[in-house]
């Protein structure tokens, strides 16, 4: 059965600002991911927490649950255990996944249920109007442009989501960008197809509370990671080139250390083999 975008949209009008990166994610999900994989809408469940991106379930006509700040990943796992045939997607922001909900992530990785977490990283608490988040670039006051517009600069170093995910050994780790929906669509398809816990970071502009220079810089510096191609790391040389291999967790760790502000990498960082079955724990 062919499904069109219209099949996956509800009649609810998004609350997001004009130009918000979340529109890119919404259309990727409703135009590409669900129809592309032929997932009937009743077989999908989208769970979110609280934040701008977490408003998304109301706009997608699958089963959906816009739940509590930081807790979406717990609800998603419960549903997946109860109904393994569901395609379960968790959506949240940087604050949602990596501040208030950070404690749940390593355990979700450990359980390795077949669910896909999409972290919409816009570097700021936008729903509450511009406070710093764990991913707001850390700079001293007056040092540069990468500060949220309204409030104080972050005093703590940022928490790097990719390093965190790699270090906890999430079985699929990727990063995309909201402005390249073609690649994002492919990454999400790979993530959903992967049998196991998948984590996808989506670099997303916040047009209201990020200084424009922040996302402009990311977009300019972004480079694509492709399997089999040489990665540009200092350790790599023409004589002994380092070739990207998503099965290599050591390489993934090294790549995750590359600073997002210096060289944002887009692609599949890591893809472990032999994830758990659909049934996950209940199979045991």
């Amino acid at each position: 059965m062919m499904m069109s975008r219209a099949d996956y949209r509800t009649g609810v009008k998004p609350v997001w600002c004009r130009g918000c990166g979340n529109f890119g994610l919404l259309s990727t999900l409703t135009r590409k991911l669900f129809p592309g994989l032929g997932i009937p809408k009743h077989k999908a469940l989208v769970v979110s927490g609280i934040g701008c991106s977490s408003r998304i379930p109301a706009y997608i006509d699958t089963y959906g649950f816009n739940s509590i700040h930081g807790r979406a990943v717990t609800i998603a796992q419960g549903a997946k255990l109860a109904r393994p045939e569901l395609t379960v997607v968790v959506i949240g922001g940087d604050g949602d996944f990596f501040s208030i909900g950070a404690g749940h992530l390593p355990h979700a990785v450990r359980r390795n249920l077949d669910i896909t977490c999409i972290m919409v990283n816009n570097f700021v608490y936008a729903l509450t109007k511009g406070q710093t988040s764990p991913t707001t670039p850390h700079l001293k006051r007056g040092e540069g442009a990468f500060l949220s517009r309204q409030f104080y600069p972050p005093v703590d170093p940022l928490l790097d989501m990719l390093s965190y995910s790699v270090s906890t050994r999430a079985s699929f780790i990727a990063q995309g960008i909201a402005t390249d929906t073609a690649q994002l669509g492919w990454l999400l398809e790979e993530a959903v197809r992967h049998k196991g816990f998948s984590f996808v970071s989506v670099l997303t502009p916040c047009v209201t509370f990020d200084p424009p220079e922040l996302f402009d810089t990311i977009r300019e510096k972004a480079r694509y990671l492709r399997e089999g191609e040489v990665v540009e790391l200092p350790e790599s040389s023409p004589d002994t080139p380092w070739v990207h291999d998503p099965q290599n967790i050591g390489l993934a760790l090294r790549l995750a250390e590359v600073s997002l502000m210096e060289e944002p990498l887009l692609g599949v960082f890591f893809k472990g083999g032999g994830g758990m079955t659909d049934a996950g724990l209940s199979a045991g």
Partner: peptide, 30 residues
């Protein structure tokens, strides 16, 4: 397990409730 049920010892009681609500919306008595 003998009844084909779902059991998880979770990371904390917050996760416990999340897991239980997730199972409930998917149709199990949780």
């Amino acid at each position: 397990p003998r009844l084909d049920g779902v059991f998880v010892q979770a990371e904390d009681e917050i996760a416990v409730m999340g897991l239980a609500l997730g199972a409930s919306i998917a149709g199990l008595k949780a």
